[in-house]
Structures are given as C-alpha cells and as structure tokens.
Design a protein around this nucleic acid. Structure first.
Lengths: 241, 241
DNA sequence: TCCGGCAATAATGCATGCATTATTTGGCTC
DNA sequence: GAGCCAAATAATGCATGCATTATTGCCGGA
C-alpha cells in the first residue's frame, strides 16, 4: 500500500509482489509488467528479476526463456493436487498439535471457533473466513514444526485466491461448520487419528467446492494480456475426471 | 562434470549448483564462492545471484544482507521436521498410488524390490540405496500428482546428504528391509491405510537413524569457511529432547 | 480481402561498473 | 603482549548499457 519513497528490502519486495499476485492485483495468466513494477518500487530491473526468480521457485509465476514472467494460471488439476497436499500437511499438523499444544493454545482455538460459529449463524462471510484461516494457522503453528509451517503457508498462498473467490453455498457452509465442530472436538480430546481424518476430509471438501465453483481453467494456457478471456470457462471443467 | 565451454541455461545452472550442494562439493555451512563459480561456469555475477536466490527459496542456502550466501546447515530439528513432512507426503503418495497405479507400474516396483532384497542379502549398500530411492520415487510418481512429486523431490533434496552420509547399522538395515516388504505387500493388496502407515513409520525410523548417526549439528551456526570444525559434534546432540 | 514475409520496435538476458557495506590488516594504546 | 581502533582491501547490492531475441506493424502478392 504505502508507496514509500525510501528503497525497500529484497524480502519485503518479494512479499509485496507475492501479495499482489495472491490478491489478484496481478491477475492469473497476465504478463508481469517489469517496467511498471520497477518505477512503482523505484528499483532497477536487476533486483526485480531476482524477485521474479524467487516467485517462480515458489510457484507463483512462470518464466519462459526470452518471454518474461507471467502470473501462474491454475488448472483444475492444480487446485486438486494442491488441496490434496495441503490436506496431508494439515493432517500431520493436527497429529503433532494434539501432542504438543498447550492448554492455552487450545483455549485460544476454542475461542476462535465459537466466534466463528457466531459469524456462521449471522451469515457474515468475511469475518468467518478470517477466523477460519486463523484457526487452521493456529493448528499448524501448534505443531511446533517450522518446516511444516513454512510449507503450509507456501502451498496455502498458491491457492489463497481460490479460497476466497469461490462461492460458498449455504449447504456447504453448514457442512464446513459442522466439520469444524468435529475438528474442535478432536482437538479437545487430543485425538490425533480423528483429527487428521477430519482435516483431510475438510480440505478435500473445500477443494470440491472451489473446483465446482469453476475457479480454475482446465488447460488452454494461451498467452494473453487479458486473462479474463481465459478464466470463467466453467463449461469445460465439468466434463473431465 | 563436463565443464562445457558453451554458456549454460539458467535452469541447468540451478540444477548444477544444487547438485554441488546436495553432493557435498559445497559443504554445509561453507560460504558460497561467488567469484569462483562465476569463472567456473563462465558467467557474470548477475545470473549467478539469481540462481542463489532460487536456491535460497528452495532452502539450500541462506542469504544474509551484505554477507552473501552460505550453504544451509541442518540442525537435528530440521532433519526431524523434514523427515516428518516427507513421511506425510509419501504416505499421501502411497494412498493415491494404490488407487491409481497400473499393474505394470506395480510390476516394476516389485522387480525393483526383489532386486533390492538381493543387494540387502549381499550387503551391497550403494546399489541397495539406488534401488531404494527408485522405489520410493516410483511410488510418488504413481500418485499422478505433479505437485506432490515436485514437493517430494524438493524436500528429499534437502536431506539427501543425510540419507547417504549416515551410517546404516545392520540391525537397522534388516529392519528397513522388512519395512519394505510391508510396503510391497500393501502395494500388492492395494491397501492405502496400511501402506500410508508403514511409509510414515519407515521414514520416521530413517529419521531416527540419521539423527542418531550424528549427521546434523544442534545449533551453533557460527560462521566459518571450514565447516568441518562445526560438524561432527555428536556429543551435544544426545542431550536434548 | 486475407495471408505471409520483412523491417521497426520493444522486451529480455546478461556483463560491467559504481556506491555501499563487511572484513581484514596494520598500528596504537594500555 | 593483548586488546582496540582506523585505514585498506575485498565483498556485496544494484543501476546502467549492450547484444540478442521476441513482438508488432507494414507492405506486397495471391
């Protein structure tokens, strides 16, 4: 946001541009405007290209030889696979968390859960999402594994747009909320097996919701500066699998 | 190997330097000799620095502001956490693999298994390791998930040195072999639950073996060009946890 | 009118050079 | 002789410029 005139650190630059991608300021499939970003952040192309290399390694952009950088365009399959891995990671996090979390951490999660339940009742989606995310992050954090936490955040970032863009039908919302009750229950009982199973299923269901909402394209990664012509082709998505 | 005089592509450069790190040509904790690598690959510092940024994003090197790049130095905890995540990923891969692999793939794995068993009997470690790795990779590949495969390779690369450097006591070797029999069995029966459980345990045991072999350091990340003074301090590792 | 080829333009990738920061070396004080 | 400070040296980070490649616009022929 704050277009500070002072020069910016490398890591912050990565974070900012990553945020621009995740938040959709740089839309999926669009070409990344090197020149623009250079003057926007008052830097030369050298550090910016380094940032793009990092973002490519993280899976946010694709780099083609002599053709520059484009924001990644997720296919239905990508979303599927990413959620599958995210599910496995969160299941592991859950197992570790029940063994390692303090009662205080548990109490915090419990508090967040009931606050979230309130927003669910009131059908206030935005704050529901916020609490939802904080709960999941708290579980992962309670695993005490920085490797796991880092990876979870990275994978999560790659599909974050999907999580918020996709519509949330009421029946799915109710289902998600009841899954969360199961999650809390397993946390309280410190039951790793049940918790892992519910988390895995929870994310699988989320994945289904996102895919059926037609978030991602199927293939068709043609080049375009106007990615909207590519996205929103839900007609095709349903046929495969 | 082949120090080709022709200029090298960016991705190959990343791969080569990554290999140098994984294979220990650039030892853990050591400073990365920018100048040397530049003349070694006949490139300027700009592309090399991009490579280092990528390797940092992959977790192979650390970059400190104005202090350049060093090969990452794994702590006992890092190894633990990495194996834990690798176990979760491979467990997921196993679940997907039994559902998706062809009979031909299964036959290939079976063949590799029995060849590996032979090397186990003969106590030939090097070819055993090769087969072992190919089996695990085949399972992951059979999951049909490129996200999973990519991630598995990345995490695997980060601890590859540990897998080969750590000593393999006979009792552990026998145990590992019998675990592999369980793996094959579950694959043949296409039993996802058992397979996932065995794979997870298998990697957990491997982790224990590596850690108890004193592969990684505990903390102490002092700066040094001669990392051998840091490594091999197994005295400390045993005290914690 | 449409298509293919060619020139003009823009971009990409990289080498180089400079300003800044860390590191080492030498000398000084205690 | 040991510790500490300052100058010299080396490195790091980045801006700039150039060679190469892609892209666009234009023209002629079918």
């Amino acid at each position: 946001m704050g277009n500070a005139s002072a020069s910016i650190s490398h890591d912050e630059l990565v974070a900012q541009i990553r945020t621009m991608i995740v938040d959709g300021v740089l839309p999926p499939g669009s070409k990344i405007p090197e020149r623009e970003l250079c003057e926007r952040f008052k830097i030369s192309r050298t550090p910016l290209r380094e940032v793009l290399k990092v973002l490519a390694a993280e899976g946010h952009v694709t780099l083609s030889q002599n053709k520059g950088a484009r924001v990644i365009l997720l296919t239905t399959r990508d979303v599927d696979e990413l959620y599958e891995v995210l599910g496995a990671l969160e299941a592991l996090a859950g197992e570790l968390a029940v063994a390692r979390m303090t009662n205080e951490e548990l109490a915090e999660i419990k508090a967040m859960h009931y606050e979230m339940a309130l927003y669910h009742q009131r059908r206030e989606l935005a704050p529901y999402y916020t609490l939802n995310r904080r709960i999941h992050e708290a579980i992962v954090k309670a695993s005490r594994s920085v490797v796991l936490q880092t990876l979870y955040e990275q994978i999560g970032a790659r599909i974050r747009r999907a999580r918020f863009v996709a519509a949330m039908p009421n029946h799915r919302w109710d289902e998600a909320m009841s899954e969360h009750e199961g999650i809390l229950n397993a946390l309280v009982r410190r039951d790793p097996v049940t918790l892992a199973a519910i988390l895995k299923m929870h994310l699988r269901n989320k994945s289904k919701q996102v895919v059926s909402a037609g978030f991602a394209v199927e293939v068709d990664q043609e080049e375009t500066d106007d990615p909207d012509s590519l996205r929103k082709k839900p007609a095709r998505s349903a046929s495969k699998t």
